[in-house]
Design a binder for these strands. Structure first.
Lengths: 188, 188
DNA sequence: GTCTATAAAGCGATAGAC
DNA sequence: GTCTATCGCTTTATAGAC
């Protein structure tokens, strides 16, 4: 009996946590094997491309999750206030209120970012576009909408870095609360 | 003739660039050897504690640089407008307008952050304190001063992550320009 | 103080039995 | 599909000549 697709998704979820916790280089096959309960043989059966394929598929899975839960709702919304609030709630949920780190950011800053550069770039670009679109629809000029969206993305990433660096997840919560107000504040 | 201290500082500068470019794990002794022109024997002569000592001393050197060029001027200033402008200029210079990454942030997000957790925490805490002090002196309440300073730190870190992730250094410049205005804007 | 040689361990990846 | 055994390589670190 073939392994259902849903189980591969669960496997990718576990892999994602290992990559988040240890970085791409730090996530050794031994750690991955331990976290998934799968031997190296099984891992290479699922991912003939080895560690790089594992990380690439994890990034794809993350992209899929954000597309469904963040990007699409943003694009489809005609109520910017609700859309922004929903985005921040989903983001807070996804990053466990600052206790979970962003794998895309980890890869972006990490040593082996080149193989994943296109995926990283796309993730940020699509988020940026989706958020800017809803802000523009709410009456902001295209340039203000794009500038504010960029600010939102970098605030989320920076809050995760600072929260981890100071080992204080509350930093993330404060940043998200202020971001919400800032994103929809009247234009100057 | 003993090697002057100034040359060790230059060595730490080179080491810092290797760690920034490749991360802690990715900075192999081979790469370090190539970048410094020193064989492994010499490297272990200078750093008996190996790679971990190298990174720890690089972080110390970074801390010293920020203390002199950023933290102290912030603390000593009685003109918040000038102090903030000078800080942002120094930061823009240090991070090469977004083309250079923050090693402290890289370590904070990286796999081997534990050995350096105290240094990372201190770097952010001292910056936070120094910036909040100058804002408070300019008339903001203690809580507004601290919240805005936290926002400044996370904006810098996030801008560096996003600039690298999207491979667009201009993101950093835009973020710094807006940060300057936001830091000193009248309190709501 | 700098080098080469090498140790000892860990790495990603592969082979092949079951 | 899953496992064990192992290859070939790279890693950090050490030893010792110069």
């Amino acid at each position: 009996m073939a392994k259902p697709v849903s189980e591969r998704a669960e496997l990718l979820l576990l892999l994602g946590e290992v990559f988040r916790a240890h970085g791409y280089e730090g996530a050794t096959l031994a750690l991955i094997s331990e976290a998934t309960g799968l031997g190296k043989g099984s891992l290479y059966h699922f991912f003939p491309g080895g560690k790089q394929q594992m990380a690439a598929e994890v990034l794809d899975e993350i992209d899929r999750w954000f597309e469904i839960n963040i990007f699409a709702p943003l694009r489809d919304s005609d109520d910017p206030g609700r859309a922004v609030a929903a985005m921040i709630e989903a983001v807070d949920d996804y990053f466990r209120s600052g206790r979970r780190v962003c794998l895309v950011g980890v890869i972006a800053l990490g040593a082996s970012r080149e193989p994943f550069a296109a995926q990283v770039h796309d993730y940020f670009a699509r988020w940026h576009d989706a958020l800017a679109a809803v802000l523009k629809r709410s009456g902001f000029s295209a340039s203000v909408a794009r500038r504010r969206s960029e600010d939102a993305l970098l605030t989320i990433q920076g809050a995760l870095v600072l929260a981890r660096g100071r080992d204080d997840a509350k930093i993330f919560g404060r940043a998200m609360a202020e971001l919400k107000a800032r994103l929809l504040a009247p234009s100057r």
